[in-house]
Design a protein around this nucleic acid. Structure first.
Lengths: 346, 346
DNA sequence: TGAAAAGTTGTTAGCGCTCACAGTTTGCTT
DNA sequence: AAGCAAACTGTGAGCGCTAACAACTTTTCA
């Protein structure tokens, strides 16, 4: 079925060279070729050179399938990503993949818009069948990580947006302190009524940001009020911005930039201006943040670093290094014009 | 008091069952098991049942490595994605992957931020070594597709944002007519001086949008002026918005939403309001578009459909179907408030 | 100088599967 | 009841590679 009618035109593709072809050309045994290919010691350098020339001449490349069959290793990892195309997760996925490429590892990506346990388990099983040596999970939903962790895999697992699972490797920015910094900034500006527009309840990041906000307020004897629980989207920010009670408030910390944008828009529709009537601070620093009106004060996460850290953590675990030291970066406060001094509350 | 045969508390990782284990348990030959597994005919149904039971009992799953080694097929495809985490491409990647999962195909993703020929060729070679049966390219850079197409692969190739290469399967929205619709909308509103903020020169989509803009202007005897060539980012939109000459202009068609946002911001800084002083129209309909100020009139692309179409096109080519019919959708004009009636030009 | 040690190369046996074909049973015809 | 085709099932040979170890060289040093 792979033979189609154009085949008589194309020259018969010369069969990929095998290790035996190289061996014959170099006048050595296939095992010596294998040694050269795998960079093992105890090969005379003159022999090595001859083999390398033969390899180049025949354009030999080892067959991963054959190798995987015998070694049960594949130099391949599986990546599970749930959710839609939000900026944060998709950037992380992208840089994770890019880092894997740099390290000459292959990655199977399983994207799914939903994150029900069955799909996730199915993805993991498919990965296992493919002999992946490690699995990464980039998911906004806490449950996803739990499902994979609950499968008691024998291969390493690393997750973004981690729950404090014991024994689970997690990588990510310090959401908690990032949020505290954001709120601290607002307090320094004189704000006292600082509400929160939360992210989805099943997101660890969302919960950590909320916890940071709440703790910082608590440390300053200020009371906390959540004006809504959104789903990260601008439209959810807008929805809560339209409906919420603003009395006593001079600032709102939104769980991400996209919701901030929706929120500001709704506030404008209610006749309020930002930051004069209400200061708004977001989280993530998406590329648009600096160019909306007003430019968004926010907390920047470095998704490239996170993605690359996830990969390196996973690879070191695959190498057997179970050290618990996990990279965690501190997000940086970016001050723009959506926050300003508190004006008197009416 | 002997326990059930199934041993749940094995210390040693119990070696994965092979086709021979199943054969022994079912009292048949390994070949018969293979027939059952591959759903081949000529197996007595009673035998089939016995084998299936053995498979279930032993939790047998076929080894893709062994299978790939002998069949040279892998039920795996390779996806090359270049560029950064822009909304359009990353959405397409995501939905492509999701569709592949639904079809029970595995996909290797190679992300790279740059797109130099060497990296791309390297990625393709890695894919070939893994016996992928098809390759998809999602890249803003025209060159990327050319590189892959130039490798004269024997496996099918499908690309997003296509050049009119003969023999190359391409999927995507009709950028040209989408752009014409956008400009037509502006003309209907009374605009006569309609400039373009172009996307990067090496992007086919960018060129198609520009061509659509230019042709629609030409069809109405209006003159065309490009105020800048950006890189899709809000910051590039802002940069050109700051510097450009606006005389004689009442509207600008930007090549994407993100640049529109930067552009509008720059215009505001120059003391102009949108749409009163200048109508702006974007392209893509990113989630933020409806919530910036003013909400962006734009041309919506359905990235989910595009991603899924790419996958199905690729799979049908893998199946040997070389039909040239390629899915192409017409982007939809979304009218919001960044466009309005033309006011008198000064 | 000679033997052990170290360095180098070759041989054999699979990894788990499919393919080609050989062998066996069953069903149907006459 | 014989005979033959069709339906089933089994056997053996690889796919391309690495692991284990055997065999052969060269070096080292008493």
């Amino acid at each position: 079925m792979s033979l189609d009618k154009v085949d008589y035109v194309t020259e018969e593709a010369p069969r990929q060279a095998t290790i035996f072809d190289v061996a014959r050309l170099a006048g050595v045994s296939h095992q010596t070729v294998s040694r050269v290919v795998n960079d093992l010691p105890n090969v005379r350098s003159s022999t090595r050179v001859r083999v390398e020339e033969a390899i180049k001449k025949l354009r030999y490349v080892p067959s991963p399938a054959a190798r995987a069959l015998v070694t049960r290793r594949s130099r391949t990892i599986g990546l599970i990503a749930t959710g839609g195309p939000e900026y944060g997760p998709s950037s992380t996925v992208l840089y994770f993949n890019a880092a894997a490429r740099d390290a000459r590892w292959s990655v199977f990506t399983a994207n799914m818009t939903d994150s029900d346990p069955g799909s996730i388990r199915g993805a993991v099983e498919a990965f296992l069948r493919q002999n992946v040596e490690g699995i990464a999970v980039i998911s906004g939903h806490e449950g996803s990580v739990d499902v994979v962790a609950g499968m008691e895999l024998t291969i390493p697992l690393v997750a973004l947006e981690a729950t404090p699972h014991t024994g689970l490797a997690t990588v990510g920015a310090d959401q908690y302190n990032g949020a505290r910094n954001a709120v601290r900034h607002l307090i320094a500006l004189g704000h006292r009524g600082i509400a929160h527009l939360a992210g989805p309840a099943d997101s660890v990041d969302a919960r950590e940001r909320e916890r940071g906000w709440r703790d910082e307020l608590g440390a300053n004897d200020l009371s906390a009020r959540v004006i809504g629980v959104g789903d990260w989207s601008p439209s959810s920010g807008h929805r809560f911005g339209e409906a919420c009670d603003l009395t006593g408030l001079t600032a709102i910390f939104a769980a991400n930039d996209q919701m901030s944008i929706g929120l500001i828009h709704a506030l404008n529709e209610r006749g309020l201006t930002v930051p004069h009537d209400m200061s708004i601070i977001g989280f993530d620093d998406i590329p648009e943040a600096a160019y909306v009106s007003p430019p968004l004060t926010t907390v920047r996460q470095d998704f490239e670093t996170i993605g690359r850290d996830m990969l390196s953590t996973l690879l070191s675990r695959i190498d057997g290094d179970r050290s618990t030291e996990l990279p965690q970066s501190l997000p940086e406060l970016i001050e723009r014009s959506s926050t300003g001094p508190a004006t008197n509350v009416d």
